[in-house]
Computed example of a mutant assay.
Amino acid sequence: MPLFPDNQRTISEPVSCQGVGLHSGVSVNLRLWPAPADHGIVFVRTDTPRQVSIPALSEYVVDTSLATTLGKDGVKIGTVEHLLSALAGLGIDNVRVELDGPEVPVMDGSADHFVQMVTGAGVRELEKRRSYLVIKKPVTVTEGDKEATISPARRFRISCTIDFKHPLISSQSFELEMSERCFSGEIARARTFGFLRDVERMKKLGLGRGGSLDNAIVVDESSILNPDGLRFPDEFVRHKILDAVGDVSLFGRPVIGHLNAFKTGHALNHKLVQKVLSDPSSYELVQGRPSEMERAEVRLPELPGGRDLEPLVA
């Protein structure tokens, strides 16, 4: 995928999967459909009396306690972040997501299955220019010792640090410049994780009903309970980046900026997106000519409306 694709993209043909929801434990059928330009990523519950379309935009986030949940008109769809991360990581702008349950299936706890679905379906370029949300000034949100900042950059970069004060998950940091190859190879296979003590507590509260060693890394006080161990030595921080990619995709457009996440989660990621969108001076919506941008190596935030970027009129 070019660094800045010229046009919007969708999948070439429908593709489906079946799995259980991580928290609901409900078996769900999920189907991705190609969608036209400017459609965006839109979720539709097919099991409700009236089909409600829920755009993957921050304004429809209704819960961020244990996952990112979207809702509209009383209809909710939970744990959307892994699928959104896969779509964003592969540069997919427009898809209709149909599912017959309350939660996106967790699959193996990573975004890898969704990546395989998209690559299997194929990618189709649409005849409409792609737009970007370009960060123009630093924006920061904090909560205790947690902090998330997004600042101007030439490309979409993520720096992430976690620290769980645990012998197996101490301080871990990872940084990458987003591309389709980097996302697929370095991030997509990183699984969600939890502590055994928290898993037991969640199940008493009626949550985590679909969780197992097949779809999550589970850690007790001194060991990893999964027989096959980790996929990466720092799989924990890589999964936090996976989550962040999905959460910031709720801007509704691909971002050009540097996200620096310190001990963040879904709630703080969402607050950052909200704070950026609440201040029009912090960003600009632009269209770009990829070949010219890459050849000139421009500093994108400094050239809104220049020869390589065109401000959007709507």
Rank of each mutant, 00 (worst) to 15 (best):
A188M: 02
D38M: 09
A244D: 01
E310G: 00
S222Y: 01
I92F: 13
I187A: 12
R253F: 08
A216E: 00
K165D: 14
I169W: 00
S223H: 14
D198T: 01
I187M: 03
D308V: 10
G109W: 11
S53T: 11
T69D: 03
D198R: 06
D247V: 04
L83K: 08
L90Q: 11
P304E: 06
E59L: 08
P36A: 13
F114N: 07
L268V: 10
G306C: 10
Q18N: 07
L213R: 02
R295M: 12
C17G: 06
D220K: 01
T192K: 05
S179K: 09
N7W: 11
G122W: 13
T161M: 10
E175Y: 08
E13F: 07
L176S: 06
P55S: 09
T192N: 08
L312R: 12
E297H: 12
E310L: 14
E147L: 12
D6T: 14
P227G: 00
R253K: 14
V44Q: 12
F193Y: 15
R96V: 14
E180W: 04
E103N: 08
P301F: 06
A153W: 09
G288W: 02
L66V: 15
R231L: 13
V15N: 01
E200S: 05
L230C: 04
V141S: 01
E147T: 13
G91L: 08
S58E: 14
S27M: 13
F174P: 07
S16A: 15
S179A: 12
I150H: 00
G144F: 03
F183A: 04
F43Q: 04
I11N: 04
V313D: 13
K204C: 00
V42H: 03
A56L: 10
D63L: 10
G40R: 08
T79M: 12
M1H: 12
G19Q: 04
V42Q: 12
